[in-house]
């Protein structure tokens, strides 16, 4: 019987999904090229680009010096002149040394030139905490990026989304900041076996429920789902929304859920101040005020640098228990 079964998916890790998505797009479009530190011969420090050099050759998969501005500048110049480069910035924290290129150059080129220039590039980052790497290798930078007009910001939470959203990012004509969650690299998941292209700016409801809406992103989606499973055993049905991208922001899906449940919680890995949840809370506060039965509650990391010790990092990150606890008490 097994021979008659159509294999529609295969299981890969989040890390493998990156290379899968890149290979899918590079195989389709010869203008897609990949650059970054250690991405070619070594297959990336996160091993997310393994095998691409062998498959696509050194003209399309290039190692660079440790020159984050030069990497992103080269990607920008190439994007302006007909290529669709993907640049890896390794740890997302390194954005800070190339933030000029991202925030002043890439993000503003189209606007300042009134559409004369187009910058269809993707920057890939290893984002987030959980690996005991300490304060300069663990930050969640999505809120930094979200604050700059002109950028799209994507954070996949599953291997399938890595492939589908990466493909969509490569095909998008705007600069897309693609934040891969370092803590999720080992995660396994099903990926459609044919070509897989998703859509930017569409959130996914990962679990349906009528009592509360938990909005989350990236690694925190999984903690939110765990919390929701726990709460379900107690008779509280939570809806878990995975935003998947911050720009575009799928307010429609969130608002529809909040209209149904009357309660909204955000689960954010970022430090408290100016996290994406603050923006979302203000939008929902303005637009769904009469649907809310209680104030929006934000569950974030405290406003501290990321500590290295496991016990401290664990205490910092929103855990499933903490999420469940906040929701439970709010619904009390």
């Amino acid at each position: 019987m097994a021979t008659l079964t159509q294999v529609a998916t295969r299981t890969v890790t989040y890390r493998e999904a990156v290379a899968l998505g890149l290979a899918q797009e590079m195989g389709r479009d010869p203008t897609v090229v990949l650059i970054g530190e250690d991405v070619a011969a070594a297959g990336g420090v996160f091993k997310a680009t393994a095998g691409l050099l062998e498959r696509f050759g050194p003209e399309r998969v290039r190692d660079t010096p440790i020159s984050e501005q030069a990497i992103l500048g080269a990607a920008m110049g190439a994007a302006m002149t007909g290529l669709r480069p993907v640049a890896e910035l390794m740890f997302a924290d390194f954005l800070s040394v190339a933030h000029d290129i991202v925030a002043n150059q890439v993000a503003k080129a189209r606007y300042m030139t009134n559409g004369q220039l187009s910058v269809p590039l993707v920057v890939r980052f290893g984002n987030g905490a959980g690996l005991r790497f300490g304060a300069q290798h663990s930050q969640s930078v999505e809120s930094w990026l979200m604050a700059v007009p002109g950028l799209k910001v994507v954070v996949p939470s599953t291997p399938a989304d890595v492939v589908g959203l990466l493909a969509a990012a490569v095909r998008d004509d705007d600069p897309v900041m693609f934040l891969e969650e370092k803590a999720l690299y080992p995660m396994n998941g099903e990926v459609p076996s044919g070509e897989h292209v998703d859509q930017l700016g569409v959130a996914r409801v990962r679990r349906h429920g009528k009592d509360a809406t938990i909005v989350s992103l990236g690694t925190m989606v999984h903690r939110s789902l765990e919390a929701a499973a726990q709460l379900a055993t107690e008779g509280v049905e939570c809806e878990v929304v995975d935003l998947r991208s911050l720009v575009p922001l799928d307010v429609t899906t969130v608002a529809a859920s909040v209209t149904k449940t009357g309660r909204m919680f955000t689960v954010e890995e970022n430090p408290r101040l100016c996290g994406w949840g603050a923006e979302l809370a203000s939008i929902i506060g303005e637009e769904c005020f009469y649907d809310l039965d209680a104030p929006v509650r934000r569950i974030t990391s405290p406003h501290v640098p990321v500590p290295a010790a496991g016990s401290l990092e664990d205490a910092m990150l929103p855990s499933a228990e903490r999420v469940a606890d906040v929701v439970r008490r709010a619904l009390g």
Binding site: V33, G77, G82
Partner: peptide, 23 residues
Amino acid sequence: LGSYAIVGAHLTIANGAAWSARY
């Protein structure tokens, strides 16, 4: 392909255009 007001940045961008031309 532009005038840039952050000192030095566009040298890196010119590289990209040159790289793209060769590619």
